[in-house]
Amino acid sequence: MAKMDHIVEQVLAKIRQREHQSYEVDYSSEESVPDKSVYTDYANVTIDNVTIPLLANIYRLNLNDPWTKWVLQGISFQVNFTFQISSSMVNFIPKKMLLDWPVSFVVDQKRSVTAFYQKAISRSDLAILPDKSIIVVTPNQKITDEAKQISQLKQMIIQMRSDGNCIWHE
């Protein structure tokens, strides 16, 4: 029994260690994907230089793309993915991906991109977000006056989207 307890303790120690470990990789369609061992060693993975074609492939679940397969497999291992994008790419992120996918989007390595389900976005919704966040809203969503004040204090960018979809997803 003591041997089994020792093994269990080792596994739990590995899991606790993994939770605090981060891995960063540059995306390149020319390069091969990182090894699958990344999933077992790192709970947090940042992909730099994410492109619009990569986003489209992941969103459409294009399993012919090796990076899409790698990201989807990582999600099944409960890896927390952060996609580093440029500010001009925000309109290319499908709102469903912002709301429902277990990935985060960050612009210029510091501004998180967020969207909300509810029709009224309140002060408390924005207060918990990091300063300088980018908030994607649609015309059918209202930002309360208090939320507008908080967004100014926290130097947030409110990005109005003409509809719920991104530019390429109709």
Rank of each mutant, 00 (worst) to 15 (best):
S76W: 05
F116N: 00
T68A: 00
K110R: 07
F81P: 01
P94H: 14
Q10E: 09
I134Y: 04
V136T: 08
I75F: 01
G164S: 13
I47H: 09
Q78F: 11
N64W: 08
R123S: 07
V103Y: 03
N140T: 10
R123G: 03
Y23S: 06
N62M: 00
T114I: 13
P94I: 13
V45H: 07
K110T: 09
N80Q: 11
S162L: 12
D5P: 02
T114S: 10
S28F: 08
V25T: 08
Q84R: 10
D100M: 15
A127L: 11
Y39H: 05
T46E: 05
Q17V: 07
K3G: 04
Y42E: 10
I121D: 10
E24C: 03
A2W: 02
E9L: 10
L55F: 06
K119R: 13
Y27K: 00
T46S: 11
S32R: 13
I52L: 04
A147D: 02
R18D: 09
I157E: 14
D65R: 05
A43Q: 12
I93N: 03
D100L: 15
L55G: 01
N91E: 11
M156S: 04
F83D: 04
Q149R: 12
R16G: 07
P66A: 11
N62E: 07
S88A: 14
I128M: 11
V71S: 09
S76H: 08
R16A: 15
S162C: 05
